[in-house]
């Protein structure tokens, strides 16, 4: 129902102060798909996500949402199409879950138009989708890390945008909660057609859950496409500077990266150069 919004970067250069982080990047996000951006620390992947969500103005080039320059479109208008969950959002002390999720309705409310039944319905939907309905009246600061992350996702869901960007949504979560969050995002993508773009650290989860994988090296696009094409031994060596063995994941057939460190590696694999 919603996979017709397009998001792309054209000739994008980004930086902070004197430092250029990303230089002349072209990137097309496939609509209605799950895209994962991977790359080493400080490779510029989070910077790209910030620019794609208009939080960072480009030096040159542009981010195009539905063909329009995102930095020149009224920010509230963008917020009705594109949502972002940053890496470390702040929950005001003592705020109730439903109240926090309701903050996601901000772009749908005018200066004068007050809270409507539609807003309540959107909050209720977001709570149910994320399995947090029974937490509605609890204070956010009492929740566990996994619950809290689901509540934040509920907040961006209440925003009801067709494109959703997430900056490392699984950081600080244990493996069970990581899988839970990624399953939830897949549900959203499959059932509502939401275009999802996320920065992920875990290569194997990225390979498994993304329809489209984007590998960034030194602020430039290294490769993009289906996980099987992108995530190879050469890619891991070039992007992360890490020797590895890449085998098919026995549970889904997608590539699985087994890193080769200096220790605990059997004789047969020792000779593989970085």
């Amino acid at each position: 129902m919603t996979s017709d919004h397009t998001l792309a970067a054209a000739g994008l250069s980004l930086g902070y102060g004197d430092r250029t982080v990303v230089d002349d990047l072209d990137l097309v996000i496939p609509p209605g798909k799950v895209t994962a951006i991977v790359g080493a620390n400080a490779s510029g992947k989070s910077t790209v996500l910030k620019a794609m969500s208009r939080l960072l103005a480009p030096r040159t080039g542009a981010v195009l949402l539905d063909g329009k320059e995102i930095h020149r479109t009224p920010t509230k208008e963008v917020a009705r199409t594109l949502g972002l969950l940053p890496q470390s959002p702040v929950a005001p002390e003592g705020i109730a879950v439903a109240d926090l999720v309701g903050r996601g309705r901000h772009p749908h409310q005018g200066m004068l138009s007050r809270w409507s039944a539609e807003d309540d319905a959107a909050v209720a939907r977001a709570l149910e989708v994320t399995g947090t309905a029974d937490l509605a009246d609890r204070a956010v600061d009492e929740l566990s890390g996994g619950q809290r992350q689901r509540v934040w996702i509920a907040m961006v869901l209440a925003q009801e945008t067709d494109v959703l960007l997430l900056d490392e949504p699984t950081t600080f979560l244990d493996v069970a909660h990581q899988v839970e969050v990624l399953d939830l995002l897949t549900d959203l993508n499959r059932e509502l057609g939401t275009t999802i773009v996320m920065v992920l650290h875990d290569l194997n989860l990225a390979a498994r859950y993304a329809d489209h994988l984007v590998a960034i090296r030194d602020g430039a696009l290294y490769a993009c496409g289906e996980a099987a094409e992108v995530l190879t031994r050469e890619c891991v060596a070039d992007v992360f500077g890490l020797s590895s063995v890449v085998v098919p994941d026995p549970t889904c057939g997608k590539p699985m990266v087994l890193p080769l460190g200096r220790h605990h590696v059997a004789e047969g694999h020792r000779t593989v150069p970085a």
Binding site: W115, A121, R125, E128, V129, A133, L188
Partner: peptide, 23 residues
Amino acid sequence: MTAVQEASPATADVVAAGRRRRA
């Protein structure tokens, strides 16, 4: 935990009641 189109009336009531209580 699956995506749903409409929330159950019970959840909507909890949300509305909480909002009225805060107001």
